[in-house]
């Protein structure tokens, strides 16, 4: 559905600005019907690549296609629903007026626009504010109206730049539901997010972008497996030794209730257990944690930045 082919983007410099290389040749494909989470640290180039995908920016080299067509063709964009990163809309319009404008620009009929507007505003809990000017909308409400306009024309491909930002827990739950629905209806979704817990819940695959390069594009299971070689060892206090004494010996751990948890690799597990027992500590638990995606990604990002720093 979406193909990035060696896309590079350099923002041109000016008199007092240096040119910024934002994308350093990224290549990947999003299959039809797939939900892909686009993750990466701030400034990684997520928004840049999404803007290229919408034809708002031109790539310096390489190309992006949607269903085989360039996004600079209007007909290509007819199939895309887009939520911009920061929801700046025509603030002098009311919610309904704004959606009507969007609908007209997408070539929808007036009746269809009215119907979809009612549906979406209802769904996104904005019915109350339908005639209020966007100027008077709160941040989260703007985010919701942004989602509404992205979904308005029932596009095949949803491109959402940080759809969860600014939303309350109910809102986030709502977005998750809507993404799930889109998926069951066979839509393709590419969305960027910093909230990885959400990504874990809805995405099929995650594309990890760091420093303008694609570090990984894999299913979430695969990504988690990357972190599999570490174990968690939980030590408990006994009358012979307090938790503080344990913590003094292995300061890199963290407190879990009365106990002290250490992250150790498989090779050194035996040794540490022996040492702990000899000091009088109690072995509470040894387990192989399913590392949360967040931790995995943080590690991925750290690795890359360190590598980048060394290079």
């Amino acid at each position: 559905m979406v193909t990035f082919e060696d896309v590079k983007k350099t923002y041109p410099g000016g008199l007092e600005r240096r040119a910024v290389r934002a994308l350093n040749g990224i290549t990947f494909t999003v299959e039809p019907g797939e939900v892909v989470a686009y993750v990466g640290p701030n400034g990684a180039g997520k928004t840049t690549s999404i803007n290229i995908l919408l034809g708002l920016l031109r790539p310096s080299s390489g190309r992006v296609t949607v269903g085989g067509h360039l996004p600079t063709e209007a007909s290509t964009r007819a199939r895309i629903g887009y939520l911009p990163e920061r929801p700046y809309f025509y603030e002098q319009l009311s919610a309904v007026e704004f959606l009507r404008l969007c609908g007209k620009l997408s070539g929808l009929e007036a009746r269809r626009i009215a119907q979809r507007t009612d549906e979406l505003l209802d769904r996104l809990a904005l019915s109350e504010a339908r005639h209020r000017r966007l100027r008077h909308f709160s941040r989260g409400m703007l985010q919701r109206i942004g989602l509404a306009q992205a979904l308005l024309h029932d596009p095949d491909l949803l491109v959402l730049d940080e759809p969860m930002s600014g939303l309350d827990p109910i809102g986030r739950q709502l977005v998750r539901e809507m993404l799930g629905e889109a998926k069951t209806r066979g839509k393709t979704v590419l969305y960027s997010s910093h909230i990885l817990a959400d990504a874990e819940l809805v995405a099929d695959r995650a594309a990890v972008l760091v420093g303008g390069e694609l570090k990984a594009l894999a299913s979430l299971g695969e990504l988690r497996a990357v972190s599999g070689d570490r174990l968690e060892l939980v030590l408990g206090p006994t009358p012979r030794v307090t938790r503080e004494e344990i913590a003094q010996r292995w300061p890199e751990g963290r407190a879990v209730g009365n106990d002290w948890a250490l992250s150790v690799d498989e090779g050194s597990l035996q040794l540490i257990i022996t040492q702990a027992i000899s000091r009088g500590a109690r072995i509470v638990q040894v387990l192989r944690p399913q590392a949360p995606l967040e931790e995995t990604l943080i590690r991925l990002m750290r690795q890359s930045t360190e590598k980048g720093g060394n290079a």
Binding site: L54, L56, Y82, P84, Y88, F89
Partner: peptide
């Protein structure tokens, strides 16, 4: 500058 143009140009218009 206000970035309002994005929602327009992302739609199927020239």
């Amino acid at each position: 500058e206000r970035k309002t143009v994005r929602v327009m140009l992302a739609r199927p218009i020239e």
